[in-house]
Design a binder for these strands. Structure first.
Lengths: 99, 99
DNA sequence: TCGCTAATTAGCAAAAATGCTAAATAAAAG
DNA sequence: CTTTTATTTAGCATTTTTGCTAATTAGCGA
């Protein structure tokens, strides 16, 4: 749902998580280490991002690897541009309806 | 401030305001008429958008005309794309493609 | 199994956002 | 100056978000 995406982007720490994931997937612990907030607080930020589908999680043994969902971020940027009438379909990505 | 922008985008009615302004500036009253919320509630939504600089207001006699701030919306889309490493060229004054 | 590490969930309090009604302000008209 | 219309501000209650500590789950290895 688009509302969850914009709500997820409304917190600076969550936007910082996305920025940190730009260079590649990271373990939850490594992510949390970059913030002043407590571990559980960061865990909840991650779950908000996950529910918005902006990131996805993959368990690797005892750790959890997070990665950014590029296509969702792209679509979100498109939704922002749509506010000023820029067409949302002018990227060169393939369009895949079924998952 | 970028935080105000993303916070402003976090409410569906405020995003709807931006969509309504896509086709051109609108009077506060005409905007409010499109929503179920009370007039004062819509007025506050407009002020949140104004403080985020996503829209600007111009008094026209007894009414107030709102317009969307195209460049701020563009920059915001750029900030979203930056999460996945797409370079944002802020404030490019020449547009070769549109000619 | 036990112990250890990684991460999440539970529960609570504080802060922020939301939305209402009533009151106030601003500009124009009479 | 008073009224009327358009819009904002004030004040308050309700809901949502945030962030903490404590407890819990999950996997791994001895």
């Amino acid at each position: 749902m688009q509302n969850n995406i914009f709500k997820a982007l409304a917190h600076p720490d969550r936007r910082k998580v996305l920025s940190l994931l730009r260079s590649g997937p990271k373990l939850a612990g490594d992510l949390a280490a970059e913030f002043d907030s407590s571990w559980p607080t960061m865990s909840r930020h991650l779950s908000v991002l996950r529910e918005a589908d902006l990131i996805s999680a993959e368990r690797q043994g005892t750790q959890i690897l997070y990665r950014i969902n590029t296509s969702v971020v792209e679509d979100t940027a498109g939704a922002v541009l749509a506010f000023i009438g820029v067409s949302q379909n002018d990227n060169d990505d393939y369009e895949e309806a079924a998952e």
